[in-house]
Amino acid sequence: MLKMLARLLKVLNSETDPSQISLALALAMLAGLTPLFSLHNILVLLLVLMLRVNLSAFLLGLLFFSGLAYLLDPFFHWIGLSMLTAGPLESIWTILYNSSLWRLERFNNPIVAGSLLFSLILFIPFHLIVKSAVIRYRENILSWVQKTRLMQLLKANKFYHIYQSLERMR
């Protein structure tokens, strides 16, 4: 847990482009909220490795969103089922259902459909919000955080040594 927190601070406090961090987290949200062994996650993995996004942020985000997905599954099921059984959309689903690629994607499973739709809708807003948050953090909060008593206390314990060792490795 300490290592993970140290990694997060390392990422936030580094000189990494905020877009790379936010895109990594947005992709982590997409992969984490939807069932991991889904076809679209192969594409996500390709994008994560090919685009210069922050891998630590992606891994941390994946862990967080996978945990969150368990809590949100009933909600995703509800969204997915409502969408898949909506009369006006039936013709679209029927076309997709007759395609091998979409069948392998298991789009007709309400949890897959619900979570994918939810993450895709949130993808761009989430990316922009996180990007702006990282910029603001670095501009306003980082220096304040460094001066806080809490940070001073943290610097004195094991956690800070882990953080330092990671910094040296950079």
């Binding site: 089922l81 009369g87 029927t94 007709n108």
Partner: peptide, 25 residues
């Protein structure tokens, strides 16, 4: 079976959850 359509919500043989079936060619 969904009323007035070819859509059907079915439980898979094994595992949890449901799958929605549509009309196949």
């Amino acid at each position: 079976k969904q009323e007035g359509s070819d859509t059907e919500v079915v439980k898979p043989l094994r595992g949890k959850g449901v799958y929605v079936r549509f009309k196949e060619r």
